[in-house]
């Protein structure tokens, strides 16, 4: 993330914290970091629009329980009840994903589909990589975010509800993961 984007995010977040309405589960509170209706404008932050409901709920649960940790996100999840997590899951799963902000390079466009087959990405994330159940949509996700997460999984450092994703990332090389991020980030969510 650029410095400008980072400080914009920080001040937006600060604004929202100051002006925080009583309800911690207000989806407007998420816009500062996850963009309008959950479509992130910040390269390092994930879009949460049109993610499967169970994935959003599970991710929020993981942050709240301290199983997944992030300076910005953990405090947001800390005070939410299960009912609120479900409400947020429902809301963001029903928002439409915006077109991708990333343009896939020629090499990744050629190699991507084969790698996504080879490493079974499509088996779990779905034929169009739109996610299902507790598995996230990765089509059209922020490129920087995808890259970071994939390398974290490979290093065994990203929280993982069932060990499946860590195992998938471990089978691919660092370079293949970069190619996959480049490919997946440019796919239109549909």
């Amino acid at each position: 993330m650029t410095f400008a984007a980072r400080s914009a995010a920080a001040s937006a977040a600060a604004f929202f914290f100051l002006a925080a309405p009583a309800r911690a589960a207000d989806p407007q509170l998420c816009a500062a970091c996850h963009g309008p209706n959950g479509n992130s404008q910040i390269p390092a932050n994930p879009s949460i629009a049109q993610q499967p409901r169970q994935f959003i709920e599970t991710a929020l649960y993981q942050f709240r329980e301290g199983n997944r940790k992030n300076e910005q996100m953990s405090p947001m999840a800390e005070k939410l009840s299960n009912a609120e997590l479900r409400e947020l899951g429902k809301f963001f799963s029903e928002q439409k994903a915006a077109p991708p902000q990333h343009k896939t390079g020629a090499e990744a466009a050629a190699a991507g589909p084969g790698l996504a087959e080879k490493y079974n990405c499509v088996q779990c994330h779905g034929p169009k990589l739109m996610g299902q159940q507790h598995i996230p949509r990765i089509a059209g996700q922020q490129y920087d975010y995808l890259r970071v997460q994939l390398h974290l999984f490979k290093a065994g450092k990203r929280a993982d509800i069932d060990g499946n994703m860590t195992s998938a990332a471990k089978s691919a090389s660092e370079q293949e993961l970069d190619t996959l991020a480049d490919y997946v980030a440019g796919l239109s969510p549909q």
């Binding site: 709920e57 599970t58 649960y61 299960n82 997590l85 079974n120 159940q133 507790h134 509800i161 069932d162």
Partner: peptide
């Protein structure tokens, strides 16, 4: 079986109404 799509199911960790 490496290409099998069978997998265990994850529970809804927040419960459902």
């Amino acid at each position: 079986q490496q290409k099998s799509t069978l997998h265990p199911f994850a529970p809804h960790m927040t419960g459902r109404d």
